[in-house]
């Protein structure tokens, strides 16, 4: 399910976390969890830069349906 998140969505969530941290809304207790989530998001975004989910077959099959 996490894999389906789009780059834009991941980026938005990441920026939210950063904003929370910047505004000091995070305590040490939740820090670890937030940092973990932020790291996951960064990882997702980075992997999206270097891989594509689209393939030619998908496009071709769409073309035939039309």
């Amino acid at each position: 399910m996490e894999k389906k998140i789009s780059y834009t969505e991941a980026m938005m969530e990441l920026e939210e976390i950063v904003a929370e941290i910047e505004q000091g809304e995070i305590t040490v207790d939740t820090l670890s969890e937030k940092v973990k989530r932020a790291s996951e998001l960064i990882k997702i975004c980075k992997s999206k830069l270097t891989s594509t989910e689209e393939d030619v077959n998908k496009i071709l099959s769409d073309l035939k349906e039309d």
Binding site: Y7, M11, L14, E15, I17, V18, I21, E22, I26, T27, V28, L31, V35, A38, S39, I42, C45, K46, L49
Partner: peptide, 27 residues
């Protein structure tokens, strides 16, 4: 365009690290 995105990610990672560290030091 991709460079810009990659740079932005690095920057956000940096911000998170800095603030997390600050919070821990305070603790």
């Amino acid at each position: 365009k991709f460079h810009n995105l990659s740079g932005k990610l690095e920057q956000l990672a940096g911000v998170i690290t800095d603030y997390a560290l600050e919070l821990l030091e305070e603790d």
